[in-house]
Nucleic acid binder design. Sequence first.
DNA 1: GTCTATATATAGATAGAC
DNA 2: GTCTATCTATATATAGAC
Lengths: 228, 228
Amino acid sequence: MINLNECFKLIIGHGMANRSDTKTRILDAAEKLFAERGFSETSLRLITSKAEVNLASVNYHFGSKKELIRAVLARYLDVFMPGASTELTKLVQNNENASLETIFSALVRPLLDLNKVRTEGTRIFLQLLGRGYIESQGHLRWFITTHYGEHLDRFVQVVSQSAPHIPPAEMFWRLHFTLGTVVFTMASSDALMEIAEADFKEQNDIESVIRKVIPYMAAGVAVPVSKA
Amino acid sequence: MINLNECFKLIIGHGMANRSDTKTRILDAAEKLFAERGFSETSLRLITSKAEVNLASVNYHFGSKKELIRAVLARYLDVFMPGASTELTKLVQNNENASLETIFSALVRPLLDLNKVRTEGTRIFLQLLGRGYIESQGHLRWFITTHYGEHLDRFVQVVSQSAPHIPPAEMFWRLHFTLGTVVFTMASSDALMEIAEADFKEQNDIESVIRKVIPYMAAGVAVPVSKA
DNA sequence: GTCTATATATAGATAGAC
DNA sequence: GTCTATCTATATATAGAC
């Protein structure tokens, strides 16, 4: 008498989980929960129960919760960052003086491509990014800037070139205002879409929200510095 | 032989703490820690040890941590909200068609007045607001909208009137983008000011950051709606 | 690799003496 | 009103059998 589980093991190899592998199941469950509830409000217990894997497997595969968080984000950043850089390069080649709105819009395609990688990928990624910048006291900021710094620098460079009337120090502030805008919007996007639906009968998805926020941010970044 | 503590009790009444009263000491310690570290990262143990009061006194005076959080915010909102409404009223009386930048700027004085109420009051209040909107899953949002809804409605009304080319649904989104901008900026203001100092030798305080962010937000809210 | 069981830490909240 | 001591819940992390 052998049970179903043992039967699978015989077919696909010993020690290999039947369904998709445990590591992936953890990442998939974790990213959804992190995006919805935030990092500190999501326990490993909740993750492993949703993933239908053992509690101890998180530490086996990732070492700690912090490293799991980084792994969840890395899976997206490794796709998005090179994609974004490619788009920026194409843009600069074709159009020396692209507008800010064009530059921001160039990031939309790489963002939406994340939906091909995983269901609701775009929404989840942006919410994760939001949570990450807001919640974590440094370790994610550090992780992102050290691992993807060259892409970020490239972005800053292209934006600065497109708005040469903004001095570097002012641009620093405005890009952080922009980060705040997008990060907060994405972290609360579910709630905001619900309200927009209830109060204005507006149907939105993550793309339409992105399209709304781009003009706002582009106008803010480029507004002339007041002389006061 | 009586000690100093007993002596104070004899003078100012029994059961009354000598220093400022326990409730206030808790509020003062809590608001600093909440602003710096966020709500869920701040334990009652940390608060009471900084306040030099007993752990149990939080529950005695406030009932729960959630209620303490609300009390901390209420102490500021009760000053700020009426002040802001007064400024808006004055503005509308003097100037039917005030610009968005003027409207936002009208809130600066009530904000800075919080520095008179308590040391670093402005910074702490804005950081708390940022943390509150970002962290809490509803209970603070609910508290703010139900207790201060009329002031918020008034603000929305004045802004909408100043940008009549923006339809209400679009204004809803843009005001939330604005909320995100200010809230994220304030929650990370300490880090941003440090970086600006290190990288650009720029000395900033909370007022100068507010002055920087206003033109950004005003431009974003008023930018014409794209026809796409 | 995966499981059970547990170590260890820390949280919010409360009972009851004073 | 304030204290000590403790309850209860929940967290991350790990040891060791399989």
